[in-house]
């Protein structure tokens, strides 16, 4: 069963999603949710995924404040109301 979740967009990626701060999607897993995001907003795809189709090394995805690397990665199942955050590294000195 797909469930409705929210993806929080970092400021650096907002220009690629028409300025949205968050995007709601229907999905069963974290990977699926990101798939919906990148098919709706195709400019995001190259930022998140490498040519090998894997998430780029520095991209941190959090599900309700937990790094998905500590969960089941992109296979991590979703529950209604979950929040997925795409966290960038930091710029500036």
């Amino acid at each position: 069963m797909s469930t409705s979740v929210t993806i929080l967009i970092p400021s650096a990626l907002r220009p690629s999603v028409a300025g949205l701060v968050e995007v709601s999607v229907e999905a069963k897993t974290v990977g699926e949710a990101l798939g919906v995001l990148t098919s709706t907003h195709q400019r995001v795809k190259g930022h998140l995924y490498g040519e090998d189709g894997r998430l780029r090394s520095f991209v941190n995805i959090y599900l309700n404040d937990r790094d998905i690397r500590e969960l089941e990665r992109e296979a991590t199942p979703l529950a209604a109301g979950d929040e997925i955050a795409i966290v960038p590294s930091m710029a500036g000195g």
Binding site: A12, P15, P88, A91
Partner: peptide, 18 residues
């Protein structure tokens, strides 16, 4: 500079978008 606004080069800025 990083090659785009979303990057993993901590401390560096993509001036065009910053």
């Amino acid at each position: 500079e990083p090659d785009g606004p979303f990057h993993g080069l901590e401390g560096l800025k993509h001036m065009e978008t910053a």
